[in-house]
């Protein structure tokens, strides 16, 4: 579990996060949603330590992330996997080398053990036989899956996904969502996804945090999204007139209370 305590972040005079206190639960897919500029990416960067908070704390279970020493931080980071929006695969390395990189850097495994682990992770994301391909030779969806394989290769306890569906067609996006959810359940890990993809919200949103102007506007699950009367949430989820009409029709027909 990861939780934040009164988290503030400012850039000069611009206050981006205004006292975020939230809990991301273990074994669940936790979603951070919100409009562009609401502070999602900043919150994500604070959670993984790429930014320092102006005030407040981030707890990884019982560990205060920003007060531990370098060595402890390195050990904690080995328990963290992250899928980046642009996948962040190393262009000069093959798919296999990309996935193997954390193993090369942090483990004493033999070459055979590493290869087995890489193949297992690639198989887990349904990417067999692409070991020797380079990122530029693969599609966007494949790159995301390689990114996931690299993120899980060290068997992390915390998985972060920044906009996992951006740039993907709806079908591939669902595949990626399902993959993330099944990995979360299988390994009982804490997964935090930063997204504004409504399909993801409704498919895998077990714990949803809506950010609005740097503060939490709503927190709940996907089943509560449709019935909530939170205006900010409804404005965000049903942004298009088509969805608004659809929601109204559902309410009128008694499908939504």
């Amino acid at each position: 579990m990861i939780h934040t305590e009164n988290l503030f972040k400012s850039f000069d005079s611009n206050q981006v996060l205004k006292g975020i206190t939230v809990e991301f639960q273990k074994g669940k897919t936790n979603l951070i949603i919100g409009r562009s500029g609401s502070g999602k990416t900043v919150l994500m960067k604070l959670l993984v330590g790429l930014l320092q908070p102006t005030a407040g704390k981030v707890w990884y279970d019982n560990t205060d992330f920003f007060s531990i020493g370098k060595r402890e931080l390195r050990e904690l980071r080995m328990k963290v996997g992250m899928l980046f929006q642009g996948s962040a695969l190393f262009d000069s390395m093959s798919v296999e080398a990309n996935v193997r990189f954390p193993l090369d850097m942090f483990t004493h495994m033999t070459a055979k053990e590493k290869l087995d682990r890489v193949n297992y992770c690639l198989d887990r994301v349904s990417l067999n036989g692409v070991n020797s391909k380079y990122p530029s030779e693969t599609s966007g969806g494949m790159q995301k899956r390689v990114g996931i394989a690299r993120a899980i290769v060290l068997e992390p306890e915390y998985l972060f996904c920044d906009e996992p569906n951006s740039g993907l067609d709806p079908k591939t996006a669902i595949v990626i969502d399902e993959l993330i959810r099944s990995i979360t359940l299988e390994n009982n890990i804490t997964t935090i996804i930063n997204t504004h993809d409504m399909n993801s919200v409704m498919e895998i949103g077990e714990n949803i945090v809506l950010l609005h102007q740097g503060a939490i506007a709503w927190n709940g699950s996907k089943s509560e999204v449709l019935t909530s009367d939170n205006e900010i949430l409804q404005d965000f989820i049903f942004a298009s007139p088509f969805l608004q009409r659809l929601r109204k029709a559902a309410i009128d027909s008694g499908h939504l209370e």
Binding site: L76, R77, F84, G86, A88, F101, M105, F106
Partner: peptide, 13 residues
């Protein structure tokens, strides 16, 4: 710029 450095930082490199 391609977030490779961020990716490595998060891994603990």
């Amino acid at each position: 710029q391609k977030e490779h450095i961020d990716a490595m930082e998060i891994m603990g490199v």
